[in-house]
Protein backbone atom coordinates (compact mmCIF):
# COMPACT_ATOMS: atom_id res chain seq x y z
CA UNK A 1 0.00 0.00 0.00
CA UNK A 2 1.46 3.35 -0.99
CA UNK A 3 0.98 6.05 1.59
CA UNK A 4 2.32 9.56 1.90
CA UNK A 5 4.51 8.13 4.62
CA UNK A 6 5.65 4.84 3.19
CA UNK A 7 6.41 6.28 -0.24
CA UNK A 8 9.43 7.94 1.29
CA UNK A 9 10.60 5.05 3.42
CA UNK A 10 13.02 3.84 0.76
CA UNK A 11 15.17 6.96 0.89
CA UNK A 12 16.07 9.45 3.55
CA UNK A 13 13.45 12.00 2.65
CA UNK A 14 10.08 12.69 4.25
CA UNK A 15 7.35 15.28 4.11
CA UNK A 16 7.21 18.53 6.00
CA UNK A 17 3.79 19.68 4.94
CA UNK A 18 3.91 19.67 1.12
CA UNK A 19 7.69 20.03 1.09
CA UNK A 20 10.02 17.06 0.80
CA UNK A 21 12.81 17.34 3.33
CA UNK A 22 15.60 15.20 4.73
CA UNK A 23 14.38 12.86 7.50
CA UNK A 24 16.96 14.20 9.91
CA UNK A 25 15.73 17.75 9.36
CA UNK A 26 12.00 17.19 9.92
CA UNK A 27 12.12 16.87 13.72
CA UNK A 28 13.84 20.21 14.16
CA UNK A 29 11.54 21.90 11.61
CA UNK A 30 8.47 20.59 13.45
CA UNK A 31 10.08 21.66 16.71
CA UNK A 32 10.44 25.21 15.37
CA UNK A 33 6.73 25.26 14.49
CA UNK A 34 5.70 24.23 17.98
CA UNK A 35 8.21 26.46 19.76
CA UNK A 36 6.58 29.27 17.82
CA UNK A 37 2.94 28.41 18.56
CA UNK A 38 3.22 26.93 22.07
CA UNK A 39 2.00 30.00 23.98
CA UNK A 40 -1.02 30.57 21.76
CA UNK A 41 -1.71 26.87 21.21
CA UNK A 42 -4.85 26.56 23.37
CA UNK A 43 -6.45 29.76 22.08
CA UNK A 44 -5.73 28.75 18.51
CA UNK A 45 -7.20 25.28 19.09
CA UNK A 46 -10.43 26.83 20.32
CA UNK A 47 -10.54 29.29 17.45
CA UNK A 48 -9.64 26.86 14.69
CA UNK A 49 -12.00 24.10 15.77
CA UNK A 50 -14.73 26.40 17.14
CA UNK A 51 -14.23 24.64 20.48
CA UNK A 52 -15.06 21.21 19.04
CA UNK A 53 -11.58 19.90 19.93
CA UNK A 54 -12.86 19.62 23.50
CA UNK A 55 -15.53 17.17 22.35
CA UNK A 56 -13.02 15.20 20.23
CA UNK A 57 -10.82 14.86 23.31
CA UNK A 58 -13.79 13.85 25.46
CA UNK A 59 -14.64 11.19 22.91
CA UNK A 60 -11.08 9.90 23.29
CA UNK A 61 -11.38 9.81 27.09
CA UNK A 62 -14.69 7.95 26.79
CA UNK A 63 -13.08 5.40 24.48
CA UNK A 64 -10.12 4.88 26.81
CA UNK A 65 -12.04 3.00 29.52
CA UNK A 66 -9.59 4.47 32.03
CA UNK A 67 -10.06 3.47 35.66
CA UNK A 68 -8.48 4.39 39.00
CA UNK A 69 -4.95 3.02 39.32
CA UNK A 70 -4.20 2.97 35.59
CA UNK A 71 -0.90 4.15 34.14
CA UNK A 72 -1.45 6.40 31.14
CA UNK A 73 0.99 7.83 28.60
CA UNK A 74 -0.27 11.02 26.95
CA UNK A 75 2.13 11.18 24.04
CA UNK A 76 2.64 14.46 22.20
CA UNK A 77 0.43 15.67 25.03
CA UNK A 78 1.29 19.29 24.39
CA UNK A 79 -0.60 21.59 26.68
CA UNK A 80 -2.05 18.72 28.68
CA UNK A 81 -5.79 18.72 27.95
CA UNK A 82 -6.00 14.92 28.02
CA UNK A 83 -3.52 14.64 30.88
CA UNK A 84 -5.72 16.88 33.05
CA UNK A 85 -8.72 14.60 32.61
CA UNK A 86 -6.74 11.38 32.93
CA UNK A 87 -5.05 12.64 36.08
CA UNK A 88 -8.44 13.01 37.77
CA UNK A 89 -9.73 9.67 36.51
CA UNK A 90 -6.73 7.51 37.48
CA UNK A 91 -6.66 8.97 40.99
CA UNK A 92 -3.86 8.88 43.53
CA UNK A 93 -2.88 5.27 42.80
CA UNK A 94 -2.59 5.89 39.08
CA UNK A 95 -0.07 7.84 37.06
CA UNK A 96 -0.12 9.97 33.93
CA UNK A 97 3.01 10.70 31.95
CA UNK A 98 2.75 13.80 29.80
CA UNK A 99 5.34 13.32 27.08
CA UNK A 100 6.21 15.67 24.26
CA UNK A 101 9.26 16.07 22.07
CA UNK A 102 8.95 19.82 22.29
CA UNK A 103 10.18 21.52 25.46
CA UNK A 104 8.13 24.68 24.89
CA UNK A 105 4.89 22.72 24.66
CA UNK A 106 5.85 20.68 27.70
CA UNK A 107 6.56 23.85 29.71
CA UNK A 108 3.22 25.40 28.75
CA UNK A 109 1.47 22.14 29.66
CA UNK A 110 3.28 21.83 32.99
CA UNK A 111 2.47 25.42 33.97
CA UNK A 112 -1.18 25.00 33.01
CA UNK A 113 -1.65 21.76 34.94
CA UNK A 114 0.13 23.08 38.01
CA UNK A 115 -2.07 26.16 37.94
CA UNK A 116 -5.04 23.82 38.01
CA UNK A 117 -3.63 22.13 41.12
CA UNK A 118 -2.88 18.89 39.28
CA UNK A 119 0.46 17.81 40.69
CA UNK A 120 0.25 14.56 42.59
CA UNK A 121 0.13 11.93 39.86
CA UNK A 122 1.60 13.60 36.76
CA UNK A 123 5.13 13.26 35.43
CA UNK A 124 6.61 15.22 32.54
CA UNK A 125 8.97 13.61 30.07
CA UNK A 126 10.55 15.12 26.99
CA UNK A 127 10.56 12.18 24.63
CA UNK A 128 10.64 11.24 20.97
CA UNK A 129 7.71 8.97 20.06
CA UNK A 130 9.99 6.93 17.81
CA UNK A 131 12.14 5.75 20.70
CA UNK A 132 10.18 5.99 23.93
CA UNK A 133 12.34 5.98 27.06
CA UNK A 134 10.16 3.55 29.01
CA UNK A 135 10.39 -0.15 29.88
CA UNK A 136 8.44 -2.73 27.90
CA UNK A 137 4.83 -3.33 29.02
CA UNK A 138 4.56 -0.19 31.17
CA UNK A 139 1.27 1.52 30.27
CA UNK A 140 -2.40 0.54 30.40
CA UNK A 141 -3.37 3.27 27.95
CA UNK A 142 -1.43 5.35 25.43
CA UNK A 143 -2.99 8.33 23.71
CA UNK A 144 -1.53 10.51 21.01
CA UNK A 145 -3.78 13.40 20.07
CA UNK A 146 -2.94 15.54 17.05
CA UNK A 147 0.67 14.46 17.30
CA UNK A 148 1.26 11.45 15.07
CA UNK A 149 1.23 13.43 11.82
CA UNK A 150 4.23 15.42 13.05
CA UNK A 151 6.30 12.32 13.74
CA UNK A 152 8.96 11.65 11.12
CA UNK A 153 8.78 7.85 11.13
CA UNK A 154 5.25 6.89 12.09
CA UNK A 155 5.81 3.15 11.74
CA UNK A 156 8.71 3.31 14.14
CA UNK A 157 6.65 5.39 16.57
CA UNK A 158 3.75 2.91 16.48
CA UNK A 159 6.15 0.03 17.15
CA UNK A 160 7.64 1.93 20.05
CA UNK A 161 4.16 2.55 21.49
CA UNK A 162 3.34 -1.14 21.07
CA UNK A 163 6.47 -2.07 23.00
CA UNK A 164 5.70 0.10 26.05
CA UNK A 165 2.02 -0.84 26.18
CA UNK A 166 1.01 -3.59 28.62
CA UNK A 167 -0.68 -6.70 27.23
CA UNK A 168 -4.40 -5.88 27.33
CA UNK A 169 -3.60 -2.19 27.01
CA UNK A 170 -4.95 0.06 24.31
CA UNK A 171 -3.63 2.76 22.01
CA UNK A 172 -5.83 5.69 21.00
CA UNK A 173 -4.76 7.88 18.11
CA UNK A 174 -6.77 11.06 17.69
CA UNK A 175 -5.77 12.79 14.49
CA UNK A 176 -7.04 14.86 11.60
CA UNK A 177 -8.15 12.60 8.80
CA UNK A 178 -10.03 12.52 5.50
CA UNK A 179 -13.62 13.89 5.44
CA UNK A 180 -16.13 11.29 4.30
CA UNK A 181 -18.04 13.50 1.85
CA UNK A 182 -16.62 15.34 -1.13
CA UNK A 183 -18.53 18.55 -0.40
CA UNK A 184 -17.23 18.67 3.17
CA UNK A 185 -13.76 17.90 1.85
CA UNK A 186 -13.88 20.93 -0.43
CA UNK A 187 -15.21 23.24 2.28
CA UNK A 188 -12.56 21.90 4.65
CA UNK A 189 -9.81 22.50 2.05
CA UNK A 190 -10.97 26.06 1.55
CA UNK A 191 -11.03 26.66 5.30
CA UNK A 192 -7.63 25.04 5.87
CA UNK A 193 -5.71 26.84 3.14
CA UNK A 194 -7.45 30.20 3.09
CA UNK A 195 -8.79 30.96 6.54
CA UNK A 196 -6.58 28.96 8.91
CA UNK A 197 -3.21 30.55 7.98
CA UNK A 198 -4.80 34.02 8.19
CA UNK A 199 -6.16 33.19 11.64
CA UNK A 200 -2.68 32.03 12.63
CA UNK A 201 -1.18 35.24 11.31
CA UNK A 202 -3.70 37.34 13.18
CA UNK A 203 -3.73 35.57 16.56
CA UNK A 204 -0.41 33.73 16.87
CA UNK A 205 1.46 36.12 14.53
CA UNK A 206 2.63 33.05 12.64
CA UNK A 207 0.82 32.23 9.41
CA UNK A 208 3.55 29.85 8.18
CA UNK A 209 3.11 27.46 11.09
CA UNK A 210 -0.60 27.19 10.42
CA UNK A 211 0.05 26.75 6.71
CA UNK A 212 2.23 23.80 7.75
CA UNK A 213 -0.61 22.53 9.94
CA UNK A 214 -2.99 22.47 6.96
CA UNK A 215 -0.42 20.83 4.70
CA UNK A 216 0.58 18.22 7.27
CA UNK A 217 -3.07 17.22 7.69
CA UNK A 218 -3.35 16.57 3.94
CA UNK A 219 -0.17 14.50 3.95
CA UNK A 220 -1.28 12.38 6.91
CA UNK A 221 -2.43 8.82 6.13
CA UNK A 222 -6.20 8.40 5.74
CA UNK A 223 -8.34 6.27 8.08
CA UNK A 224 -7.79 2.90 6.43
CA UNK A 225 -4.08 3.46 5.87
CA UNK A 226 -3.46 4.39 9.49
CA UNK A 227 -5.47 1.37 10.63
CA UNK A 228 -3.26 -0.85 8.47
CA UNK A 229 -0.14 0.80 9.90
CA UNK A 230 -1.35 0.05 13.42
CA UNK A 231 -1.94 -3.58 12.46
CA UNK A 232 1.54 -3.76 10.95
CA UNK A 233 2.94 -2.52 14.25
CA UNK A 234 1.25 -5.44 16.02
CA UNK A 235 -1.97 -3.89 17.31
CA UNK A 236 -5.06 -6.09 17.27
CA UNK A 237 -8.81 -5.43 17.12
CA UNK A 238 -8.04 -2.12 15.45
CA UNK A 239 -10.93 0.16 14.60
CA UNK A 240 -11.64 3.82 13.97
CA UNK A 241 -14.48 6.28 14.51
CA UNK A 242 -14.92 9.23 12.22
CA UNK A 243 -15.79 12.41 14.07
CA UNK A 244 -17.28 15.57 12.54
CA UNK A 245 -17.67 13.87 9.17
CA UNK A 246 -14.17 12.42 9.18
CA UNK A 247 -12.38 15.73 9.70
CA UNK A 248 -10.95 13.90 12.72
CA UNK A 249 -10.75 10.16 13.36
CA UNK A 250 -10.09 8.24 16.54
CA UNK A 251 -8.17 5.02 15.92
CA UNK A 252 -8.12 2.34 18.58
CA UNK A 253 -5.96 -0.77 18.84
CA UNK A 254 -5.12 -3.30 21.52
CA UNK A 255 -1.99 -5.20 22.46
CA UNK A 256 -2.72 -8.78 23.51
Amino acid sequence: MSTPESSNNQDNSTHFGFKTVDKTAKASMVADVFHSVAKQYDIMNDLMSFGVHRLWKRFTIDASGVRPGNKVLDLAGGTGDLTAKFSKLVGKDGKVILADINSSMLNVGRDKLRDKGLVQNIEYVQANAESLPFDDNTFDIITIAFGLRNVTDKDKALSSMYRVLKPGGRLLVLEFSKPEHELLNKAYDFYSFNILPKMGELVAKDGDSYQYLAESIRMHPDQETLKAMMENAGFEQTSYHNLTGGVVALHKGYKF
Partner: peptide
Protein backbone atom coordinates in the same frame (compact mmCIF):
# COMPACT_ATOMS: atom_id res chain seq x y z
CA UNK B 1 -21.97 10.05 17.23
CA UNK B 2 -20.68 12.35 14.49
CA UNK B 3 -21.88 15.44 16.34
CA UNK B 4 -20.69 13.95 19.65
CA UNK B 5 -23.96 14.77 21.39
CA UNK B 6 -23.11 12.46 24.31
CA UNK B 7 -19.88 14.33 24.88
CA UNK B 8 -21.63 17.70 24.58
Amino acid sequence: EQLMLKQA
